[in-house]
Design a protein around this nucleic acid. Structure first.
Lengths: 154, 154
DNA sequence: ACTTGACCTCAAGCTAACTTGAAGTGCAAT
DNA sequence: ATTGCACTTCAAGTTAGCTTGAGGTCAAGT
């Protein structure tokens, strides 16, 4: 039979996330424990799926707040779907930018004799970057933060 | 005639970056001022290109330190090129992940009657995310931070 | 009954990349 | 000569997302 509830240690093992992170997520309202055994948190099994979702979101550059917002829209399935689509759209933009950057890097790495600033293709890239930043620094809101992926120090 | 040097105010205007950021970058050794007019920093024109490069790197998720490293490798063009290629490769991986995420989001948004956790395609996505996180939390180093794009508060 | 080890809480610390604020400086215009 | 104002410095603050540490608790094994 599938277990109905999990000890936090179990969740740690099965999710790969440290306990401190689980507590942090609970504090932020992203997950809930269903009870205690003594002091120990007990979680329902589906916390695992929820954690996967959170991880997925983080990988995609969503902030915990944004992720929380998606969860929060529990009743209103419409809002939920729209949110997802918006996110997908944002991802598209990010992907486009990153692709350009990647191509640019490869080009520069292979463009011989390039004193680094004579190549017109390269200059073009720089112009694009410039526009991006300019609008980032202008649009007073928007454009979330990206993954700041888990700084593990040696 | 093209100007040889720029007042910091000019750089602010032309780069779109705030003065505080320019000072910060200088402090970090990413750009240099060529002199002063009174207290005021004077920059050479090519600081603009350098700033574009920095912005480009940031957009692509490189840290200032990584960007600095690329600049530092001034004499050693080889190292420089390898660094660029490595970065390009990392970008490829990121792009792949983000694409998966985007597709997943779209799928979920359109998959009707989905209680959210019955869809196998969706579950697959979650498993992937899980693996990613697991390795992020294990590999004691690596995997840089992504753009933490310019948090402008309202 | 006692020990133990895994959990708990709460506050504080950490990192990156900046921003903000207070107090000072000096070129240029009047 | 005086004023103004855009710049300067330096220290401290900010944000997100956690981690770390000190000191406490408690279920389970002996």
């Amino acid at each position: 039979m599938g277990k109905k509830s999990l000890d936090i240690a179990e969740v740690v093992k099965r999710s790969g996330l440290p306990a401190s992170t689980l507590r942090y997520y609970e504090e932020k309202g992203l997950i809930q424990s269903v009870g205690r055994h003594g002091l120990r948190r007990i979680f329902a099994v589906d916390v695992l799926q929820r954690l996967s979702l959170i991880s997925l979101g983080r990988l995609a550059g969503m902030s915990l707040e944004e992720i929380g917002a998606m969860f929060a829209a529990d009743g209103a399935a419409t809002i939920n779907r729209q949110l997802l689509l918006n996110k997908a759209y944002e991802l598209d933009q990010t992907i486009t930018q990153l692709s350009a950057m990647r191509d640019g890097l490869r080009h520069v790495a292979n463009c011989p004799e390039l004193t680094h600033f004579q190549c017109s293709k390269f200059k073009q890239m720089l112009r694009v970057a410039n526009r991006q930043v300019r609008s980032l620094n202008k649009k007073t809101n928007v454009v979330t933060s990206r993954v700041n992926a888990v700084h593990k120090l040696v």
